[in-house]
Simulated assay, not measured.
Amino acid sequence: MMKLILFLVALLLTLNVFAQDITLKGMVEGNGIPVAKASLRIIELQRSTQTNIGGEFGFAAIKPGKFQIRITAIGYKSQVNTVEVLSDTVLNFSLVESKEDLKEVVITGTQKEVNRLESPVPVEVYSAKFFQKNPTPSIFDALQNINGVRPQLNCNICNTGDIHINGLEGPYTMVMIDGMPIVSSLSTVYGLSGIPNALIERVEVVKGPASSLYGSEAVGGLINIITKEVSKAPSLSADFMTTSYLEHNLDLGFKLKVSPKINVLTGLNYFKYGNSVDDNHDNFTDVTLQDRISIFQKWNFARKENRIFSLAGRFLYEDRWGGEMNWTKANRGGDEVYGESIYTKR
């Protein structure tokens, strides 16, 4: 009788061990560098996960057995690995870099990441290198190099302008930052001026009606400015430009790791032109005087299941004026000396 009891106890313990859920975790790397946002899928269990910024992944509550794991990541060749899991296991996978040209990914046409060729709306993509080859004081000025997109000055004295797409005026063009719209008819005035070039990953442009997704403000078209991912942004970047007219433009960008789960991306743009010019001697400024400071900051919070919560804010200070050469800020709001002034802090 005692032998039977011992046998039953041993059998129950054995069944309990095999019934226990186990954990599979590890890291995905390529050329010795952790690969973030790599997708891993256990084919037999139809379960998927993504690596975090450090290239780490994990599966919980797995039964013992032999499985096939498919691993895919942008810029690397896909691979399938067969693994046998009998207890808590730690595995490291190494990916091989793909030398093929990558298909562009866009988000503007569908409000989510899709292959550019699969987007139902034609989307033109302009990378940061495009704007570096055509240096200008602001993205507003740089867009003049895109066919069908025309920055237009509506006031030669105060230098106020907007963006025309396919001939439609600025209020019919929507400007977005990371897919979030700047809800204002002045979005093409203040939405594009002062965005630090150092923070821009790419600019997506939709020409023509996109109102079915974005409302009546996108009847003419849409400009979506995509900022850099914090993990891919350089620790520090700086660009300085000056002209013979004494226009000075500074772009400064940097990132900061507050904690293992919190990263901050900050960008600063400063533009200054304070040289009063009157070459035709009509007592009117030939070029608008400007003083602009723009600060952009994006906080990324790592969440469970490799999801990210982002919080972004922007501050813009601008003071520009034009008019009679003897106009000063003390004349703002008066009628003794003619001048037009734009002053905003938002």
Score class of each variant (00 low, 15 high):
Met180Arg: 14
Ser185Cys: 04
Ser187Glu: 12
Val189Gly: 05
Val189Cys: 07
Tyr190Pro: 01
Leu192Ser: 08
Pro196Lys: 11
Ala198Leu: 10
Ala198Met: 10
Glu201Asn: 14
Arg202Pro: 02
Arg202Gln: 04
Val205His: 00
Val205Ala: 00
Lys207His: 03
Ser211Gly: 02
Leu213Thr: 09
Tyr214Met: 10
Glu217Thr: 10
Ala218Val: 05
Val219Asn: 12
Gly221Cys: 01
Gly221Glu: 04
Gly221Phe: 01
Ile223His: 00
Ile223Leu: 04
Asn224Phe: 04
Ile225Val: 08
Lys228Asn: 00
Ser231Val: 06
Lys232Met: 02
Pro234Gln: 06
Pro234His: 02
Leu236Ala: 03
Phe240Cys: 06
Thr243Ser: 15
Lys255Leu: 02
Ser259Trp: 06
Pro260His: 12
Pro260Glu: 13
Pro260Lys: 14
Lys261Met: 06
Ile262Gly: 00
Ile262Asn: 09
Thr266Leu: 14
Tyr270Gly: 02
Lys272Leu: 05
Lys272Pro: 00
Ser276Met: 02
Ser276Tyr: 02
Val277Lys: 15
Val277Gly: 00
Asp278His: 01
Asp278Met: 08
Asp278Lys: 09
His281Cys: 00
Asn283His: 08
Asn283Pro: 03
Phe284Ile: 07
Phe284Val: 03
Thr285Gln: 06
Asp286Gly: 04
Thr288Asp: 03
Ile295Met: 15
Gln297Phe: 05
Phe301Gly: 07
Phe301Trp: 13
Ala302Ile: 01
Glu305Arg: 15
Asn306Leu: 10
Ser310Leu: 02
Leu311Arg: 14
Ala312Asp: 09
Gly313Leu: 11
Gly313Phe: 07
